[in-house]
Design a protein around this nucleic acid. Structure first.
Length: 256
DNA sequence: ATGGTCGGCAACCGA
């Protein structure tokens, strides 16, 4: 089984890239973040001819998550407690008996911002969500844009990034706290080399060319699933296509 | 890398 995670930075702007990527890579499951469309504007018709069914939750302009699956989605839940007014950042779907948790974790803006406190709180709520609704013995794959580079080898020039919201120690600790509940970093299990990134800032013309990036997108799994992983990799090709997202897909394969 | 560029959506916010 192949699963991928991709922050598309607007699905409607990235329909051609997503369609061609699905066609070429044939993942069983594709989790998207930052779809940036309210549900009535979700581009369902563009995917009607594919093998994929999907569940999604969005809002106007910001945030939004979606899961595409070749297999039946037997149950889908949105958000921590189905709170209707909360930002659409979490979908949990059950697919082939595995819980797929797709998260778009808040970026945080700056250390001084209330948005950074919201980010840290969001991690705490997510930890509570896992511990109250699941056991580490359950089969769970947790993916998404975590907006955290968890270790020094996950960002360029890390010594100058300690005050950045995606590398600051409080955020890294908040993510590590959830990982220690029972997750394995599937990408790092297969690819220990430094300098492998999933995000390159648009605002610098040379960031992608010079590989000045961040590993912000992750695929985690609990032990019963992690022990069956056979490969994980980042596909940089979509970042080279016309009108790319600033992120690129991360993929994991499991003998399931 | 030390500033800029996207997307949404209609002036700026968010990343």
């Amino acid at each position: 089984m192949k699963i991928a995670s991709f922050n598309v930075n607007s699905l409607r702007a990235r329909v051609p890239i997503v369609l061609s990527w699905l066609e070429k890579n044939q993942p069983d499951i594709l989790c998207l973040q930052e779809t940036k469309a309210q549900d009535i504007d979700f581009p369902l018709a563009d995917f009607e001819e594919t093998d994929y069914q999907c569940v999604f939750k969005g809002q106007k302009s910001y945030n939004g998550v979606a899961i595409f699956s070749k297999h039946n989605i037997t149950d889908a839940m949105f958000g921590f407690n189905e709170e209707p007014r909360e930002q659409p950042r979490l979908i949990c779907a059950q697919i082939k008996g595995i819980y797929i948790v797709n998260t778009y974790i808040p970026q945080g803006q700056s250390l001084e911002s209330e948005k950074y406190q919201y980010k840290l709180e969001w991690f705490k709520r997510l930890k509570k969500y896992f511990s109250e609704n699941f056991s580490p013995q359950d089969p769970i794959i947790w993916v998404g844009d975590f907006n955290i580079a968890p270790t020094p080898i996950d960002v360029f020039n890390p010594e100058t990034r300690e005050d950045h919201v995606c590398y600051h120690i409080a955020g890294r600790n908040a993510m590590a706290d959830i990982v220690s509940w029972g997750f394995t970093d599937i990408f790092r299990k297969h690819c220990p080399e430094p300098g492998q990134y999933t995000f390159w800032d648009y605002r610098s013309k040379v960031s992608f060319r010079q590989n000045l990036g961040w590993r912000l997108d992750h695929i985690m799994a609990t032990e019963s699933v992690a022990k069956r992983s056979s490969a994980s990799y980042i596909d940089k090709e979509p970042r080279t296509m016309p009108r790319p997202s600033d992120h690129t897909p991360i993929i994991a394969e499991f003998d399931i």
